[in-house]
Structure formats: structure tokens, C-alpha cells
Computed example of a mutant assay.
Amino acid sequence: MPEVTAISKFACPACGAEAVWTPSKKALVCPYCSTVSPAELKADGTLVEENDLVTALRAIPDDQRGWAAERKTVKCQSCHAISVFDEKRVAQRCDFCGSPSIIAMEDVGTPIRPGSQLPFKVPETQVREDIRRWYGSHFWAPNKLGEKALTDTLHGMYLPYWTFDAHAECPWEAEAGHYYYTTNSKGERTRHTRWEYASGHVSTDFDDVLVPASKGVHTKLLEELQPFPTTSDLLPYDPGYLSGWVVEQYQIDLIQGAQDSRQRMDDLLRAQCVAQIPGDTHRNLRISPDYSAQTFKHILLPVWLLSYTYGTKNYQVAVNGSTGKITGEYPLSWVKITIAIIIALIILIAIAAAQN
């Protein structure tokens, strides 16, 4: 499995000769032994190579591990995030939760090297202004949230993700339900369901199914940050792009990521199968997906992360470093909630009294 580099030549994984891009196959094809290596062709003509998933799950070569640059790695004892940054930097607190309980780690079990990354597009000044507005946009949050929350802990970082591609052939079977109605002697209509066997077949391609590999940012926030323009704007990995930035080392490994992606693909297939079922409702849907041409990429995506404290509790706000989309956690004002409940009760009592 060839190393993903920032150069335009790609070696054949079978014989070592230079593979060439073949539009008809949408892949790199060796002109000597005909070995096919999946890849993505970007608009500017550069390639971001896909890696065969089955081969990778067996073994990742040592020359595709590590960061290709001197980096320092620490692990937070509080949130368990693993941060990677420039060797000369001295870290005193965790960039993800603000805890001072961080310890240095040796590179035991060197991680798979990223194949590509998405550069930051949204500047820090804009992010800080957006977060200030975000503080004031939540009615149920305390009025003084923007004043009391600690806003000096904004960090730009690259988070690890896996992307997976696959082709799926999926036969399905189900019972399709068709509604019909009867009317009794009183003119009352009753709905019934007539069930009948149904079957079909879905054929589809999955492209860049995104699976977060971070544990430093809360899962719900990672899902809400999407979408990222992963296919269109990815650049081949270059350690120079990471200079001055914090990078989180993945803690959802390739095996876990592949399992997660399979579940996501199964769910999407199930929805496509449901769309094919005739009638008004269905039951007992059974799908039998068969996956082929499975490839993956390990990529780094840009996120601005703010960890703030309100009262005694820590919260996170995350901003998509490419699109500017913002999502976050915030405390609830129990004063506002209590007043709302009292007002609702007064209204209900007034309505009940009026009816009597």
C-alpha cells in the first residue's frame, strides 16, 4: 500500500513501477502489471490516494506510521485526549478540557500517518466574534453567560477522522402493508392493513463516509459540526501544514472506524431499501448487503475549540474551521425555567377556571 505523499508520482504497490491515472477506471493503474490503486482526482489535477481497507486491516507498513516530523505527544489524565504538537512547545494545560493533569507519552504504537488534511479557512478573529454572538443566542441560558464564561481558551486544532468508500449490492425482503378502509352501518370508517411479500435490490456507491476518531471533543458536537468539504478541498499530507497547530492523535483506531462506517452504511442502505418498498407501511425488513471495493483515508480536519467554565462545570463549543458552522454546550438558567413553569401553570389554571 503506497505512502500518501505530496508529490505527483505514485508507485504501484505490486511491482513498484509508476502508476498512472486512468479516467475510465477512476483509479491509478500500473501500465506493466495492471494493478489498480483507488485514488481521488482533485480539480487541480493532484491526487489523494485511497488505501485498500482489507489490506490495511491486515497490516500497516512502518513507513506509513508517525508524523514525518519531530512532534511531542501528551495525554490528558482528565478527558484522555492525546495531543500532538511542535517539539519546542511546552504544554501546561489540556487544549480540550483545560485540565493541568497532562503527562508526556512515548511514541509506543506509532499511529498511522494521515494521508491528507483540510486547511483552516475561518480566522480566529471571526470565530471569537461568532462565539460572542452564540453566547447571546440561547434564551434558556443565563443572561450573564457571555460575561462569566472563560473565553481565553480558544484553540485551533486538527482532529483525526477516517473516511470510507465502498460499493454495495443489497438485496432486501419485507412485508409491504397496503391500507384499505371499511365502513360500518353507523358510517364509521375503520382502517385495515393488507400485508403482502415484497423484495428488491439496491446498488449504490458510498463516498467519504466520515467517522470521527477523536475523544477530546464530545461525540455530539463532532456529529453536529458536519459537513466538511472532505472530497473537494483535501490536500496531500505535509507536516509543514501542522506547524504551530495542535493535532489530536486518533483513539478510534482503524478497526473501530471500519466497524462504525459499516453500521453507518447499513443504516443508509436500510433507508434506501425502505424507499423501494411499495404500499403505505412495512414490517420485517431484512437486508443482505455485500460490500466490495472498500477503501479508506486517514485525514485531519480543522476545528476551533473553546472549553469554558460556568460555575463548577466545564462546557465545549466547537467551530468548523472550514465552513464556520458552530455548535456547543451551555448551562440552563433554572431561574428562567422555574418562571416559565409558573407562568404555564397560571395559564392552565386560568383556562380551567374559565371553562368552569
Results as ranks from 00 to 15, higher is better:
2 P>H: 00
6 A>P: 02
8 S>C: 03
20 V>P: 00
24 S>L: 08
45 G>F: 05
46 T>V: 05
51 N>I: 10
55 T>R: 12
60 I>C: 06
62 D>Q: 09
70 E>L: 10
74 V>R: 09
79 C>D: 04
81 A>P: 02
92 Q>F: 10
95 D>T: 11
109 G>P: 03
114 P>F: 09
116 S>R: 12
118 L>P: 06
121 K>C: 01
123 P>R: 14
123 P>F: 12
125 T>I: 13
136 G>A: 15
156 G>H: 11
161 Y>F: 12
164 F>D: 03
172 W>C: 02
178 H>E: 09
178 H>T: 13
182 T>L: 08
184 N>G: 00
188 E>W: 09
192 H>M: 10
197 Y>V: 01
201 H>V: 08
209 V>C: 04
216 G>F: 02
223 E>A: 09
224 E>P: 01
236 P>S: 14
243 S>F: 13
248 E>P: 01
250 Y>R: 12
250 Y>I: 01
254 L>K: 15
264 R>I: 11
272 Q>E: 09
290 D>L: 07
300 L>Q: 12
307 S>Y: 11
309 T>D: 01
317 V>M: 13
318 A>F: 08
320 N>M: 02
323 T>M: 07
334 W>P: 07
335 V>P: 03
343 I>E: 12
344 A>D: 04
351 I>G: 04
352 A>D: 03
356 N>V: 15
